[in-house]
């Protein structure tokens, strides 16, 4: 990973040099200095600044507008509560289908659950379902309304890029060049989570009010199947979250901070 970052820094500096060639032209020493400055922040920047007598500009991108950050964190918290309380609810009838024969399919440890008992877990579930739904709807409305969805929506054009990216992450393959804010694998992952969110919300509505929303229950293949879809949507989230967290950890502080402040310092991509 560290190696990859290093390569990127070099590439970025070359790019900068060629773009700002007018200012730096004919000074190989300076370009070496600025390359150093880029790698190790701090005093080196100051000295480069002093020498050029012009402020050093930082490349940055306002990646995550406020609605995205807001809904991301509200959703993250609600998802945590929904999964933990949902597992507690599942413990009350740890099976699918009719009551009899009742089989315990999965024994979920109490320590992984929230709410203390079925009634408590339902209270958490019925409270945070509103935050979960609101954040999801606000997110989708913003993405569609602003056109910002184009940066993240997985489309057929991205299919070809998935495997090279997966090979890079999982099998130490070469790193494909960054083409935009998100690489094809990221787009696939993020778009899938939206799918899981929509699925969990719609199936949740059916489980909550199967008689009022009988048409929706019918679309999901009935009450029993809906319960399985609801569980499957959670499994989808649970398969996404660890990878997401590992990637955030690997990509460092500036990447993490961008989901808080919106601004990403020195993004990998050009444009």
């Amino acid at each position: 990973m560290g190696n990859g970052e290093g390569n990127n820094n070099e590439g970025r500096n070359q790019e900068e040099m060629s773009k700002e060639g007018g200012q730096d032209a004919g000074s190989p020493l300076e370009s070496v200095m600025s390359a150093k400055a880029d790698g190790a922040e701090g005093p080196a920047v100051e000295s480069a600044e002093a020498k050029v007598d012009e402020p050093v500009l930082v490349r940055a991108a306002y990646e995550h507008p406020l609605p995205i950050r807001l809904t991301h964190w509200v959703n993250a918290m609600s998802l945590f509560v929904m999964v933990a309380s949902g597992l507690r609810i599942f413990r009350a009838f740890p099976s699918f289908g009719p009551k009899i024969p009742e089989k315990v399919l999965l024994d979920i440890p109490k320590s992984l659950t929230l709410g203390g008992w079925l009634g408590g877990a339902l209270q958490w579930h019925f409270t945070f379902m509103w935050f979960f739904a609101a954040s999801g709807i606000l997110y989708l409305a913003y993405q569609v309304g602003s056109g910002h969805y184009r940066t993240v929506l997985f489309t057929p054009r991205d299919i070809a890029g998935v495997w090279p990216m997966a090979r890079h992450y999982f099998f130490f393959g070469p790193k494909p060049p960054a083409s935009g804010q998100y690489n094809p694998l990221q787009k696939l992952a993020y778009t899938s989570t939206i799918g899981f969110g929509v699925l969990s919300l719609l199936t949740g509505i059916v489980l909550y009010k199967p008689a009022q929303f009988s048409w929706l229950a019918f679309l999901f293949g009935g009450f029993h199947l809906t319960r399985i879809w609801h569980f499957a949507a959670m499994c989808g989230f649970l398969s996404f979250i660890p990878g997401h967290l590992i990637m955030v950890a690997l990509h460092g502080w500036s990447n993490f901070v961008s989901m808080l402040s919106g601004w990403k310092r020195e993004p990998e991509y050009q444009e």
Binding site: V58, Y62, L66, E271
Partner: peptide
């Protein structure tokens, strides 16, 4: 969209957005 701005401006912007 990548913009280029001074370090202190970036920090100020980031802080404002964070708040």
């Amino acid at each position: 969209m990548i913009t280029r701005l001074e370090d202190k401006d970036l920090k100020r912007q980031s802080r404002r957005q964070l708040l």
